[in-house]
Nucleic acid binder design. Structure first.
Lengths: 343, 343
DNA sequence: GTGAAAGCGCTAACAT
DNA sequence: ATGTTAGCGCTTTCAC
């Protein structure tokens, strides 16, 4: 281990001068600085980050608190992490990754993480409609930026995808195509994004004067339950002519269900999926999808946090990214059999 | 910020005693310990990790050095990270994530990372056939475990998938089905795994006495070049009857190529892909695939490193995980037209 | 422009 | 069983 004092001895100067020369931001003769820099290079000196942090009270690191549970296929999170990591690397900030089950005591992990001074701030993911972590972090003055929003009371900085707008746009497209019975397949309603996505669905119906039929709406679906719900949805006499799926696996389940029921997509059943990825692009037919800028979200949320750490007094930023829809082969006007047309 | 001395003052004891009571492993009266623990809890005390690390010379963290570039779809890495993170969390070790382009100066990033005492050890990914990082880390006594192997000279601990065995097994299966013209589509030959996978292909041919035809082997393929290569491969007079694809996107390109050429899979063309995931499972037909235990690899490699850090003197471990093949709908005996049968 | 000294919060000898 | 003292490697007043 080579320390400042080794460099100091090498160049015959004091520890102080070496420190100043290396961190740069003080007055030290240009010649001296160069000499010191060379010596440090030669000795392959790397400042001990722990000692530095202890003194400066900055960890030069942020923490990313992610959910541990993922479906087998999940292209979103890797892109997202890539965005976060990219921004951190560019700014010389370390990234600590914490993947904790939400089953653990809510803020316990975060405490260990943030209050032990390991990180200067936190990136929070998978925000719940009422998320206890937010109050906890605010109470303890831990800087953080959320990816996602609680149901209401947004007194914290965040960057989120405007799920409501994305879904609304998609459902409006289905309505424009002539669909009136549009099913909604949603994820765990605990999370904020579920709330907003379903909200977008309701808004679209409301604006179009189409009544909301609770039988067409299923939330909290998982890979285990999706196929069953789709089957019952498609087998009824007043089946939907279109399905909005809040996740890729729900869309794939819809596709399977249609196939099993003898319905062809898009002629007998239109499908739009939230979150675009290779899986839904490669399906047969390729699915019309609402696409989020995965990597961009990670970059944005990381940049927001780093900015906040550098300029704590700046007013808090809340940013909404608008997803865009790619129309592919899974959407068409409804074609009904006579019996259905009566309804 | 609440520090040891605050807890000490609270209970009317010395800092030392508090420290010992909290870290546990020293002799302090059970009653005292409980009193201290309660006070710490009440004050919501969290030890400053930086100070602790500075003193103990242990960061209680490891670094994961991952490649920054990924294809749009990449289920492997998220599973892998999940495995690493899980093991770290279970042992109370922090995980620092570094996603660096390999374009950067080889070990530069690692130096900043490891030698600054931020981490106790490193997890190295995407090992190249000749990987300069390994010598660098060995020279500087930075403990590490590699996921992957260099071409030769394995003087370091690693955990890897036995790509050679996986590919050999797959190609032998194709041979057993009667295939003789088996193409190989490979990734960047810079990486160790490319070397081993192609080796498995050659071994299988050799053992079966089938001559190696360089025209059937294409390495260094990317999403940009895959379709072109597949097209030329399938258009020739002596086209392959089977393709081994070293990655999902190469298999999908093969599938597209077959479709474009009017060949049906598996009857006119068999396909086996390395790395199993939803994408190749959901394709039409579902692909026979060599499957790696993604998450398990991450767990294994992390466990190996943590073990090494706790017991530096233990002999170095090198572990090979054997992938297993799932036979699906993309493999069948070859069916040739008469003109082809002549060759 | 450079150096001496203090101290960040913690643990670890070494007393007692 | 508990306290005293020193010091991890660094930055930072404060002198000069």
């Amino acid at each position: 281990m080579v320390a400042v004092k080794d460099v100091a001895r090498e160049v015959g100067l004091s520890v102080t001068t070496v420190s100043r020369a290396l961190t740069g931001y003080d007055d030290v003769a240009a010649a001296t600085r160069e000499r010191i820099r060379a010596a440090a290079e030669a000795l392959d000196y790397h400042p001990n980050q722990m000692a530095r942090s202890l003194q400066t009270r900055r960890a030069n690191a942020i923490g990313l608190a992610m959910p541990a549970v993922h479906r087998t296929y999940d292209s979103f999170w890797l892109d997202f992490i890539g965005g976060v990591a990219g921004v951190c690397a560019a700014k010389g900030i370390d990234l600590l990754l914490s993947m904790s089950d939400s089953s653990e005591r809510p803020a316990r992990g975060l405490a260990q993480f943030a209050r032990s001074q390991r990180v200067d701030g936190l990136l929070l993911c998978d925000i719940e409609r009422q998320d206890s972590r937010i109050a906890y972090l605010q109470k303890h003055d831990v800087p953080f930026v959320a990816f996602g929003r609680t149901e209401s009371d947004h007194s914290y900085p965040y960057c989120d995808v405007d799920g409501a707008a994305g879904v609304m746009h998609a459902v409006e497209r289905l309505l424009a195509l002539g669909h009136r019975r549009i099913a909604y397949l949603g994820l765990d309603p605990t999370y904020g994004f579920s709330h907003f996505r379903l909200g977008g669905y309701r808004t679209a119906l409301l604006k179009a004067g189409v009544s909301y039929d609770p039988h067409l709406v299923h939330e909290g679906l998982t890979e285990a339950t999706a196929d069953g719900v789709v089957a019952s949805l498609l087998s009824g006499p007043s089946r939907p002519t279109a399905i909005f799926a809040a996740a890729d696996f729900l869309a794939l389940a819809s596709l399977r269900g249609a196939r099993n029921t003898g319905l062809t997509v898009p002629h007998n059943l239109s499908i739009i999926v939230f979150d675009d990825n290779l899986l839904v692009q490669q399906s047969e037919p390729p699915l019309t999808a609402v696409s989020q800028p995965n990597r961009r979200i990670g970059e944005e949320v990381a940049a927001l946090l780093l900015d906040r750490l550098s300029h704590p007094t700046r007013p808090l930023v809340q940013r909404l990214l608008v997803p865009i829809m790619f129309e592919r082969g899974s959407t068409a006007p409804p074609t009904r059999s006579k019996s259905e047309a009566v309804a």
